[in-house]
Simulated scan of single mutants.
Amino acid sequence: MRGRKNHIKVDQGPKLIGAYAVSDVATHDSQELEFLIEKDDTSQKLYADVAYFGQEEYIERCSMM
């Protein structure tokens, strides 16, 4: 396979990009989550598509809702 995918964390308020990752098209989206959210995101809401299901443990460690 050829191609790349963009993974972006956007702040809900000012709509600024907080984190950005690029992966090979063969990499599953859920593998990029740990590069996007950080401990600084504590208590923030996380909106993600179904590709991130199964990542609840990591999301809880960052205390995201």
Rank of each mutant, 00 (worst) to 15 (best):
M1Y: 03
R2A: 11
R2T: 09
R2I: 06
G3L: 04
R4L: 11
R4Q: 08
K5C: 07
K5M: 06
K5E: 03
N6M: 07
N6P: 01
N6H: 11
H7N: 05
H7C: 10
H7K: 04
I8A: 12
I8Y: 09
K9G: 07
K9N: 04
K9S: 12
K9L: 15
V10L: 13
V10R: 06
V10N: 09
V10I: 15
V10Y: 02
G13W: 14
G13R: 15
P14K: 15
P14T: 14
P14C: 15
P14G: 13
K15S: 10
K15G: 08
K15L: 13
L16A: 10
L16R: 03
L16Y: 04
I17V: 13
G18C: 06
G18Y: 00
G18A: 01
A19F: 01
A19H: 01
A19T: 00
A19Y: 01
A19L: 01
Y20G: 00
A21K: 09
A21M: 04
A21F: 08
V22C: 14
V22S: 09
V22A: 11
S23F: 07
S23H: 05
D24N: 14
D24Q: 15
D24V: 11
V25G: 08
A26F: 03
T27A: 09
T27R: 07
T27E: 13
T27Q: 12
H28Y: 13
H28D: 10
H28W: 08
D29V: 10
D29P: 10
D29C: 08
D29F: 10
D29I: 04
D29T: 11
D29E: 13
S30V: 14
Q31L: 15
Q31C: 14
E32N: 10
E32C: 07
L33P: 04
E34A: 11
E34W: 09
E34Y: 12
E34N: 10
F35A: 08
F35Y: 12
F35S: 10
L36D: 05
L36P: 03
L36V: 08
I37A: 02
I37W: 02
I37E: 00
E38A: 03
E38H: 08
E38W: 00
E38G: 00
K39P: 04
K39G: 04
K39D: 08
D40P: 02
D41R: 02
D41V: 11
D41G: 05
D41A: 05
T42L: 02
T42S: 08
T42I: 10
S43P: 00
K45S: 01
L46D: 02
L46C: 02
L46Y: 01
L46A: 02
Y47G: 05
A48N: 01
A48K: 01
A48M: 05
A48E: 00
A48T: 05
D49M: 10
D49V: 11
V50K: 12
A51D: 13
A51N: 12
Y52D: 03
Y52E: 01
F53I: 09
G54Y: 11
G54L: 07
G54M: 09
G54P: 05
G54V: 11
E56R: 15
E56W: 06
E56F: 11
E56K: 15
E57V: 05
Y58Q: 14
I59Y: 15
I59R: 03
E60K: 13
E60I: 11
R61S: 13
R61E: 13
R61Y: 07
C62M: 14
C62T: 05
S63W: 03
S63K: 13
M64E: 00
M64C: 03
M64Q: 03
M64P: 04
M65A: 12
M65F: 12
M65Y: 11
M65I: 12
